[in-house]
Design a protein around this nucleic acid. Sequence first.
DNA 1: ACATTAAGTGATT
DNA 2: AATCACTTAATGT
Length: 210
Amino acid sequence: MLSDFDLNYAHLFEKELLKEILQVGVYKKLPEGAELIDIGSRITFMPLVISGAIKILREDEKGDELVLYFIEQGDTCAMTITCCLGASKSEIRAVAETEVELLMIPIEKIANWMNTYKTWQNFVLQSYQERMQELLEAVDTIAFLNMDERLLKYLKDKAIVNKNEVIQVTHKEIANDLHTSRVVISRLLKALENKGEIQMNRNQIHLLNI
DNA sequence: ACATTAAGTGATT
DNA sequence: AATCACTTAATGT
């Protein structure tokens, strides 16, 4: 498991930092569907994703959800960085999309290492920038794309993070993630199937043209 | 065989 | 695109 960590992160950090990370970092393995961070919760650690993927979503008072983006191995959560810089409560919810392996870094270390390690500073700034990019992409998707295009993008993203063109989901789950109704999803999926983009089975969707 | 859950359909707003 | 009401199909017990 730690060799997997090396694979993704070793080239990024200098020796001493790597040693510190392994010292203070807590290894965790979570099953699919596990909740990592909830809205309003206090963030006490920064997760470095070793393997698997995490789904980041926004939620309204009624509990209606909207998926923003997925984060994968080599990524970290930008929300935790924001938290370090002042705000301490999470604005998003993070759920394990697949089984995930994480290395949890205590939040105090983050600001600390920013001063001592140049490579850490680069890493944090760069991942923050990448998240910002993804967030803008998510905004574009919601604002400018039709529902059918959004759906297709969602399916493709899901296929990528799961490393599988066959996705296990119900229409209901997709509807929740995209914040729409099941009937709409069923109809759009039907249209996609007729266009030859996908193939449907109960509880699963097969992406054909990737 | 029966109950439950997923998915399909037509009509209405 | 959302909602309703209803049907059909698949699956679990």
